[in-house]
Each structure stands twice: as C-alpha cells, then as structure tokens.
Computed example of a mutant assay.
Amino acid sequence: MPTVALFASGSGTNAENIIKKFQHIPNLRFVVYCNKPHAGVLARAAALQVPTVVFNRHDFYESDKILRRLLDEKTDLIVLAGFLWLMPAAIVAQFPQRIINIHPALLPKFGGKGMYGAKVHEAVIAAGEQVSGITIHYVNEHYDEGQIIRQAECPVYPTDTPDTLAARIHALEYEHYPQVVADLLHVSSEASSNALPDVP
C-alpha cells in the first residue's frame, strides 16, 4: 500500500485537495504531519478520516522521532503542502528525490528563507513582475534550492494586490500539485466529485 506523508503548518487547503484527488484509489494511504497543534489542516484531515501526527521542534530537529515514524509507516513520498520548517538533513538523506515542495513563485526568483505566502506575492508585485506562478521541486537541505520538477505561470496585473494574485496562484497549485504527486506515484489523479473547486 503506497503511503504519502503530507506535511503542513496551516489551513491545509493544498493537503485537502491532494487527498480528495486520490479518493478513487483505495490502496493509497495518506498521513498528515503537522507542527502546529491548532492548525486547520488537522480538522480537515479528521473530516477525511486521515491519520495525523503532531510534533514539536524538539521532535523534528533534536530527535529521530519523526524520521522513525516515516520509516515505520513505509512512506513512499513526502509532500510539503504549506510546511514552513526546513527538512532535517537526516530525513532528506533517507528520502532522496522523494520529498517535494510547492513554492508560490517562479524559482529561483522570490525564494529562500522567510519567503512564503503573502510575503512572496508582495515581493513579486513590488518588483513589477508581469508573470508569476508556481514551482514544484524536490527538497534538499536548503530552502527552495532543490531540482525543479514543474513550473506553471500566471499573469500579474497592474491592479493586483497580494490577495488577487494569491487566488490565481492557488488555482495553479490545486491543478498541478496533484498531477506531480500522481506522476511520482505512477497512479491516476482523476478528481473525485468531492475535489475542491478551482479558484477563479
């Protein structure tokens, strides 16, 4: 049974979207890992009957608790879906080319430590960019520096705010991230009837 570990720190819309895209595959198992005990992703996972693992900084960086759990679960793929901590070197070493992340800009621009969420969109608009998008990449020991798997673009309009740009970025995330997960697992990512709608 393939097992996917979804790491998330926030509301969990990307994690929920991915889980729902694969509900038609009965032998694919998800586990949600979260570093914030009150994050919205935990409620979303519970509603979908997906098991969760909540951990703290000590568990993640100063012990092998999370690495052991990933290995015990026979994890096939680690998917970062709005997870803001840098992956420990020990986990990266154990899962080479099996950890992926999505970044809300066209790397190598607007990446690195501290560049996430609205901060990215604010920087894109402030720089006068005419195009933004998403980058899905493998994870290494440095923020946003792993090998790029796929990029997708959207326009940046002169009237854009971080929120309006974020809406188009989210639409790209919901479309492309499940497709990359499917490609890496060699399964279909056909949307179930419960999948999240695209963001206009």
Rank of each mutant, 00 (worst) to 15 (best):
A171L: 02
A46W: 06
P108Y: 02
R168Y: 04
G112L: 02
I136M: 05
Q147P: 01
K119L: 12
C154D: 01
A171K: 14
L165T: 00
R98Y: 10
I169T: 11
L84M: 15
V199A: 10
V92H: 09
I25Q: 13
Y116G: 05
T3A: 13
Q23K: 15
R57E: 15
A171M: 07
Q130S: 13
C154K: 05
D76V: 03
L80K: 03
E145R: 14
P37Y: 08
L196M: 13
L42R: 01
E141C: 12
G82F: 04
H186A: 15
Q49S: 14
A89R: 15
V131Y: 01
Q94L: 04
A5W: 04
H103W: 05
N140W: 11
E190V: 14
G114T: 04
R57N: 13
K21T: 14
F22D: 01
L42N: 07
N35H: 05
C34G: 08
G133W: 00
I19R: 05
N194L: 13
V79C: 15
Q94E: 14
P96F: 04
H137A: 07
Q147S: 12
F95R: 01
L80C: 08
R29S: 13
F55Y: 15
D160N: 00
N140E: 11
D163R: 08
S132R: 06
